[in-house]
Design a protein around this nucleic acid. Structure first.
Lengths: 209, 209, 209, 209
DNA sequence: AATGAATGAGTTTTCATTCAT
DNA sequence: AATGAATGAAAACTCATTCAT
């Protein structure tokens, strides 16, 4: 039994290996579309199955239950944000530059997929306590990467050494989140990415040494 | 018939005048407690009635339907925030000071009523589109007052005249919201009000001229 | 204790004496209007009270319960039909003539009060079994008078002596009822009374000796 | 895809094709029994499901809602009356004979299914306006066939050419309906079919040339 | 006599999940 | 692996009636 099979068992048995199969992603994508177009509370499993072109029962071969679909949607999509941010952090850039790139890339990813933006900013937040706790666990990975940038900025003397890192991160994330949500609630009628530089400037000025 | 009674009739018939009756507030307060303790989706009308010490049917003498209860909860409670902010704005203080007082008072109000904090930060966000739109209309009044402070700060030359007011407001509100939500999700295990000065400092530095 | 007080006790205590008071008829008339305009299932006691210009509770000073209102409506209104028919029967006329006058007078009474026509032909029939049984008891008095005409017609040799009186009466009543109901369902858009002579002719021909 | 399957899709999607499945008729029959035995207002969906031997939810795989069950009951059962009448009309008989057969067959069908007689004569009439309008639409087909007999009778010189066809039909239907309802309200304690010849004689005499 | 605020019982429908095929 | 018919639990709202004033 190797490292992988250990994780397979740990993470929920034989379902994990199915993440590679085409129908897994098919269902995830169907869920995003159905939730975005019908709203969280009108996104029945049967609708997702229909959109994915599979039978209702088939869903349960790939996901434990409906909650599992929703969390997986967030996990899979958030993975792209994490990868992108990891790539930015790995580059040899100053912390403020990294922060700026993060904001820009975060905005770009959501501006490029309005269905996803609706789902993450509005619909998924209607889910119950339990699901939101699990979603927050997924989000935590992303927030940790943000913290890395902040720590580096302080170490490099570019960010205010007296600021509370947790609060700073809450400001950065809260501001981005509010900006994006407002954009989504206004039906994406203006260009989100264009706002990135001004958001950067406001945030970086607040944090600078 | 004076001006007020005219408006009472104009604004929606029989139910409006009942806002003054004791059972109206009794039910609102019961709703906050039941939602906070049971979660949005487990806050049945019968539970709220029981907590309020009235019969199920009595609820419908004071509220059109369940949705009306939820919106009224937000309206009534948000009213306190708005009054407080109006009072702060009316004082002869600098914009940064007003901003600081606003943050402090916002934190204080929620720290002083953890049930309400749970309801506004977590539970009420699980409501459907329609209810959230109505809640946002109520919130808008509060955001407009925030804008007044920002405008005054710019006019007085205390805030950066080149910043976008809407973005600045989204930063302020987003940061406060994220800070409070994190505090609620951590079961209020630290002192929210103590964080206010640091939050102020971060935000004001970002906006200063 | 005289004959009247006997009936008072027998028929339901002190409510009977209230039939003479103005509010009794006021409520009966309100019920007819409310039922005709809102439909049987939308004729709530509170609506009837409002239409009658009394408080909900007042209804219960004059009627035992809602069912009692409905039966009383039928009773009071049917009384007019019975009186009219009694008057016709008392006259010195042939059975076919009496039958013709009955049909004409029945049509006239309903054509002159379309609210009442809607209530008796459509709405009151939506009432439950129990109420309809009681309504039928009231109706029976009217049907008995019809039978008197039929018996006289047979005795006088004007009606077919071999016909079953009960069936003949069911034909007469069924035909009138169906004719009137069709007229009501067509929104009274043609003149009901004008149809009376043809209805008479059809029915009398069927019954003639 | 033949003509029929085209119409199936056109006429209302998935549910129409289910009319052929055994559970559809099972539920219809259960509804008749439950309504006859419990009364219209005590015929809960759960009772019908139990009687049909299916789960409550299964009902909704075959019917849009409760109203749809009730209308379908009338439609399916009335279909038998219509077919029978069509068969009678298609035969090479005189109009009076056809009329007689119609009355006889109508009485026989209801005398042979007292549950159905209770449902159509008493219980279904308690339904609300909307349902009754839909029921009347179904009934109209039957009444049109009656008219055909009347028209033929007049053309053949067997029925009075001066009579109003609509009134004659109202007499025929009203008489049959009243006769059957009286029989049902008397708990079927006498033989309905035995009455048919006398009803025929009365009606035909009224209409004859 | 009159009021009207308060009561609380009762039912349709949805939809996540299962399991025989 | 895939299907989809069947399941059954769960909750908002109405309105006839009461009774303290």
């Amino acid at each position: 039994m190797n490292c992988h099979s250990y994780f397979r068992i740990f993470l929920g048995g034989d379902i994990v290996v199915k993440k590679d199969k085409p129908k897994y992603k098919q269902i995830i994508d169907a869920a995003v579309i159905v939730i975005a177009e019908n709203g969280y509370h009108q996104a029945q499993v049967s609708k997702i199955a229909k959109q994915a072109g599979v039978a209702d029962g088939t869903i349960y071969l790939y996901f434990k239950n409906k909650e599992d679909i929703l969390i997986s949607v967030f996990q899979e999509k958030m993975g792209v944000f994490v990868s992108k941010l990891e790539e930015i952090i790995s580059r040899d850039l100053s912390a403020p530059t990294k922060m700026g790139l993060m904001i820009e890339s975060h905005f770009e990813l959501l501006a490029g997929d309005t269905h996803l933006a609706i789902v993450t900013q509005l619909e998924l937040r209607q889910s119950n306590h339990e699901i939101r706790l699990k979603i927050n666990n997924v989000l935590r990975e992303y927030l940790k990467l943000m913290d890395e940038i902040l720590v580096k900025g302080i170490e490099d003397g570019e960010f205010d050494r007296t600021m509370d890192i947790r609060l700073a991160r809450q400001m950065v994330f809260g501001t981005m989140d509010e900006t994006i949500t407002t954009w989504v609630m206004n039906d994406h009628k203006y260009d989100l990415v264009e706002l990135a530089p001004q958001v950067q400037r406001l945030l970086l000025k607040g944090m600078q040494a």
